[in-house]
């Protein structure tokens, strides 16, 4: 059935294919357009470099008036990612605008890898290490990068 939400998701998919932003990719499941798999490649010059981090995006009929639920499947070590893989990112919560499409969501998450916000920690250990022991923080992140190649 074609609903505004589904039509919009088809457009998002076409846009992601025809004009893909660097370092991210995503596609709906073949049998369920409301469920997307995505990959974010760790940005260069960050501890996440070379990582291939997998996520799922779950949409419901309120999209694009409400954001999808976004979750990392790959294990992450990041100040703003919970142990469950859920993210603490303003545009996915109270700063959402329906003008954000899937490409914009994925690039925002990519830039979150670049610029963690240790002031609103979802992972207190990662936030503390990020502030106080950058070397150990990098080491822990590198572990997840290596895991991301296998998982």
């Amino acid at each position: 059935m074609s609903t505004p939400c589904r039509r919009r998701l088809m457009r998002d998919f076409k846009r992601l294919q025809s004009d893909p932003p660097g370092g991210v990719s995503g596609a709906p499941c073949p049998d369920n357009i409301m469920l997307w798999n995505a990959v974010i490649f760790g940005p260069a010059d960050t501890p996440f470099e070379d990582g291939t981090f997998k996520l799922v995006l779950q949409f419901d009929e309120t999209y694009p008036n409400k954001p999808p639920t976004v979750k990392f499947i790959s294990r992450m070590f990041h100040p703003n990612v919970y142990a469950s893989g859920e993210l603490c990112l303003d545009i996915l919560q109270n700063r959402w605008s329906p003008t954000y499409d899937v490409a914009a969501i994925l690039t925002s998450i990519q830039s979150l890898l670049h610029d963690p916000n240790p002031n609103s920690p979802a992972n207190v250990e990662a936030a503390t290490l990020y502030r106080e022991n950058r070397k150990e923080y990098v080491r822990r992140v590198r572990e997840t990068v290596e895991e991301s190649w296998i998982g």
Partner: peptide
């Protein structure tokens, strides 16, 4: 603008 004007429901 991003946080208070464009954000839906603000």
């Amino acid at each position: 603008c991003a946080q208070h004007v464009e954000a839906f429901g603000r």
